[in-house]
Amino acid sequence: MKALVFPAVLLGSLELWARTTGQGSDAIAPPTAAVRAFGGALMDGSLLEATAFTLGSAALGLLISALGGLLLGTLLGLSRRAAQLGYLSVEVARPIPSVALIPLAMLVFGFGLRMEVSVVAFACLWPMLVLTQAAVLQVEPRLLEVARALQLSRLQRFVWIVGPAIVPRLFVALRLGVAIALVVAVTVEIAANPH
């Protein structure tokens, strides 16, 4: 019960300040007004609709980046030549903040789902690619030698040897990707929402 005293005093002080000194402020609303707005948005369904849109765009962007990161990371991990050719491109594009691409994405896709998904996919691609490549590089080399001796095709090597070996790291990459996707999806909506 004592743990609730400080938050209650803080909320009460904010309510009092917002109703007296901060009246007319567009930035800070009284907590009671925020609770009323939350209840209204919940009752008319707009909160659930907006939440579903955000979660859907984050999930779609994560799915696209997971597929792209898995394919490219596997290619760069298995082929030393591809890794050398792609190194500069990856290292130049990876540090670009995804939020900096919002204006470009708006020009290309306009407002809406495609724009948000493209920015989320760009943001999540790099951790998926880098962690997949690292996982592929750590596959036991003797297993790959055995696969070559058995004359397995590239697809068979991936399905029977590389894929099972990298699954634990893929879950780490997906967990990281989920957090990035949600943060970027919300940021894109705040920065680019025309409403």
Results as ranks from 00 to 15, higher is better:
Gly163Cys: 10
Leu70Tyr: 06
His195Val: 06
Glu145Lys: 04
Phe122Val: 12
Gly163Arg: 11
Leu10Ser: 08
Val5Asp: 01
Ser13Trp: 00
Ile161Gln: 05
Gly56His: 01
Leu155Met: 10
Gly69Val: 02
Ala34Val: 15
Glu91Ser: 02
Ala179Glu: 15
Arg36His: 11
Ala105Leu: 11
Val183Leu: 15
Val117Trp: 00
Ile102Gln: 04
Ala121Tyr: 00
Ser13Phe: 01
Glu140Ile: 06
Pro7Gly: 08
Lys2Thr: 15
Leu60His: 00
Gly163Trp: 05
Met106Glu: 09
Val167Lys: 03
Pro194Val: 06
His195Cys: 05
Gly77Phe: 03
Ala181Asn: 05
Leu62Thr: 00
Val136Met: 04
Arg175Asp: 00
Ala149Asn: 09
Val167Ser: 03
Leu16Thr: 15
Ala50His: 14
Ser98Tyr: 05
Ala52Leu: 13
Val120Met: 00
Ala66Asn: 01
Ala147Gly: 02
Ser46Pro: 09
Gln151Arg: 14
Ile64Gly: 00
Leu4Asp: 07
Ala50Trp: 13
Phe38Asn: 07
Ile180Val: 11
Val108His: 01
Leu10His: 11
Leu48Trp: 15
Asn193Lys: 08
Thr187Tyr: 14
Leu150Tyr: 07
Gly12Trp: 03
Val90Lys: 08
Ser57Lys: 03
Val119Phe: 05
Ala58Glu: 07
Ala134Cys: 08
Ala192Asn: 14
Leu155Trp: 13
Leu182Ala: 00
Val119Pro: 12
Ser89Trp: 10
Val146Tyr: 02
Leu70Glu: 05
Leu42Ile: 10
Pro30Ile: 02
Gly86Phe: 08
Val35His: 05
Phe171Gly: 02
His195Trp: 11
Leu125Pro: 01
Met115Gly: 12
Leu144Ile: 07
Val162Cys: 02
Ile102His: 01
Leu101Cys: 03
Leu11Tyr: 04
Phe53Val: 12
Leu155Gln: 09
Val186Met: 02
Gly56Ile: 03
Ala37Met: 10
Leu63Cys: 02
Ile28Pro: 10
Val146Cys: 05
Arg157Met: 13
